[in-house]
Design a protein around this nucleic acid. Sequence first.
DNA 1: TAACAGACTTGCGTTTAGGGCG
DNA 2: CGCCCTAAACGCAAGTCTGTTA
Length: 743
Amino acid sequence: MSAVDSHHHHNHHNNHHSNGNGTVYDSNGNDEIKQEIKEEPMLSDDDVTFGEMMKKKEKKSKKNKRKAPESGEEEEESEDDYKPEKRKSSKNGKKKAGGSEDEEESEDDYKPEKKKSKKNNKKKGKASSEEDDDDDYSEEDVKPPKKKAKAEKNKPSTSTPAKNNKKEPSKKKVKEEQEEIWEWWKEEKKPDGVKWNTLQHCGPLFAPAYIPLPDHVHFKYNGHRMKLSPAAEECATFYAGVVNHEYSSQVQFNTNFMKDWRKLMTSGEREKITDLAKCDFTHIVEYQNEQREIRKAMTKEEKAKIKEEKAQEVVDYGIAIIDGHKEKIANFRIEPPGVFRGRGGHPKMGFIKKRIVPEDVIVNCGKDSVIPKPPLGHKWKEVRHDNTVSWLCSWTESVLGQNKYIMLNASSKIKGSKDYEKYETARRLKKKIGGIRERYIADWKSKEMRIRQRATALYFIDKLALRAGNEKDVDESADTVGCCSLRYEHIKLFESAKLQETDKKEKEFVVEFDFLGKDSIRYFNRVAVEKRVFKNLKLFMENKKAGDDLFDRLDTATLNEHLRSLMDGLTVKVFRTYNASITLQEQLIKLTNPDDNVAAKILSYNRANRQVAILCNHQRAVSKGFDESMAKLEQKIKDKKAEVKEAEAALKSARGAEKEKAQKKYDQKKEQLKKLKIQRTDKDENKQIALGTSKLNYIDPRITVAWCKKFEVPLERVFTKTHREKFRWAIDMTMTTDEEFVF
DNA sequence: TAACAGACTTGCGTTTAGGGCG
DNA sequence: CGCCCTAAACGCAAGTCTGTTA
C-alpha cells in the first residue's frame, strides 16, 4: 500500500555525474562571437532533412494503464442523461439519514468510470450569471506600463550602493555592471505568436571530452583487473560517481544501468561483464576523490585561471542578440553524459544519458543572422529559423526521449514578458474569483456527475492550491499525482476529526490528503470541507478501490477548457499563482509593523512568504547540518546575552561623558541580540519549508517591491541579484509610480 | 478526438562563491 | 587575510498546457 504509509520524502541526493576530470574541452569551432547581426541572408543548405526528424522512436506508451481495476462497465449515458427524478438507486441505500438541506440530487446513476476521457463539455457553459467577459478589465488595476520614462535607467532599486566591490582592480567586473537595459515593458507588444525578429547566438557549448583513466587506475571484475574500452570505461566512471548514493543500491537502478552499460561495451567486455555485483569500482572512486582533492588544493592562481576561463565561456557562448539587444542565455552548456537519476521511484533510474554531439542538435536562429559554426569536423542536425519559439538550440535526451532546450535567461524580454503576463492573468482572476467560486459551489450539486466532479476538484485547486494533475505515462515516470489524477487511496474521509494532533476540538467533515505530488514530494493535509463536498467525495469513492481515479470523469483538458470559458487565459495553474500572490499580500498587511526595525520587518516578510510556501507545499529536506548549525546560533545568542549584561553593568557604573558612550554600546549590543533572536526564529520556522520557489515563481514581484518601498526596506534584503534582474520590469513599474501597487 | 509531441514553467538538490568572522 | 558556512546560483528533472496528428 503505497502512498499512505510511505512517509519518506524521497529526498535522494541527486546525481553527480561529473567525470571528475574536466579541463579539456571539445574545441567548439566557434571562435568569433561578436559579430553584429548580418544583413545578408544566409540560407543554409544543410537545412533540415525532413525525414530525419520524422524518425521518432516508437513509444510503447500506454498512458495511465495503472493496474486497471475491474469495473469495466461504461455507463455512457449516465451523465447527460442523468435523471433527476430518480431519487436514489438501490446501491445508495446506505446513505445515512441526516442530510437536511442538501439531500436532493439523486446521484444514483453515477457509476465510476474508467476515465475514458470523454469530453462532453464542448461548448462553453454559458448562461451563468458571471459570464462577464474578460477583456474589459482595463478599468483600473492594470496599469499599463506607460508611465514615466527614463530617469532611473538602471539600478531601479531603492538603495543599491551597498554593492561595494571591496577591491576594485578587476576591470572586468566594472564594465559588466553598466550594460544597456532593454526596457521592453515600455514598448508595444508584438503580434501574437512571434517571439523575435532577429536572433543570433553562438550555439551550445558541448561537454568536455572524456579523459580516460590513467593506467594505474583499475576497474576490476570478479577480482581481476580489466582495462575497459573508452566508452565502457566512461560509463564505469559514471557509476563510480554515484556508488555512495543510496539509490545505487536499488534494484531498478542497477538493472537499468547494467542494461545500458552493456550496450556500450565491446562484445568481449559484454561477454565477461554480466553481473554488477562482481564489478569493483573502488579504484575509480578513489581516483575521483583524489582528483577532487587536487582541485580543492589548487593554488589561488590556478583557481583564478579556471575562473577566468569560465568567464570567457560565458562571454563566448552565454549571450544572444535578439532584436538588437544582448540577452543572457540561461543554459548554454549542453548537459554532460551521465547516469539518469529520476526522482522518487522512477522506473528509468540508472539508464545512461548519452553524450550529445552536434549531430544531435538543432540550431534555431534568425534567417539573416550568422549561423553558429559547429565544432570542427561536425555539423548540426539541422538549422532552422523559427521565430514562433523561444529556444536557441534543442536536442533529444536519450533516456526519456524528451526534447531539451537552450533558452534565454529569466532576465530576458522573452521570459520576462511572459512572466508579467502570468501575473496579470492572476490579477484578472482576482476580479473573477468571486463569481467563479459561486459557480463551483453551485455546481457541487449539479445533476451531471462530471460537473460535480469538476466543481469539487476545482474547489481543492482553489482552496489548497493543488496542481492540475495531468495523466502520466506509467512506465516513463514515478507514480505521482495532482488534483485531477488523485486516486481512491489518496484521500480519507472523516465525519469528524482533529485537523492537527494538537487540536483540542474535532471538526466535522474532514478530508485527509496523502499523496506524492511533483518531484515525489509528499502532500499531507487535513482540511475541513463543506458538507456538500464531503458527500460528493463519498459518492465519488463509492464502488471504487485503490488504483481507481477519484475523479473518473474529469481530466485536466476538460477542466482547463471549462476554466477558459470562465475567463480568458484561465487555467488550473493560475489559481496557484493567484492564491500565492494574494496570500503574500494579505499576510504582509497583517504582519508588518511599521515601527519595527528592518530586521524585524524582514522577518515578517519571510513569515508571509512562508505562508505561501506552506500553501504551495514547497518543502525541503532537513539538511544534515541543521541541528548543528542551530546549536551554534544558540551559542552565539548566549554569548551575546553575556555581552549585553556586561554592557549593562558598564553603563551603570559609567558617569559623565562615559555614560553616553556606554549607553550607545549597550543599545548596540541589545540590538545585535535582537537580530540574532530573529535569525533563530526565522531559521527554525524555515526548517523544512523552502521559500525560494514561491518567491521566484508564484508571488507577483510587484507586491514585494511595493512593500519594500512602503516600509523602507532595501530591496536587496529581500531580492537577490538574480531576483532583481528577473524582476526588473516589476521594480521599474513599481518604483517609478506614486500609487501603491495592489495586486 | 484522443494521444502525442513540443514548448515552456516549476522545483528540488547540489555546487559555488562571497560575506562575515576569528 | 584566509577560512568557513550559508545564501545564491546552477543543473536538470518533472510538471503544465497547447498545438498537431493519426
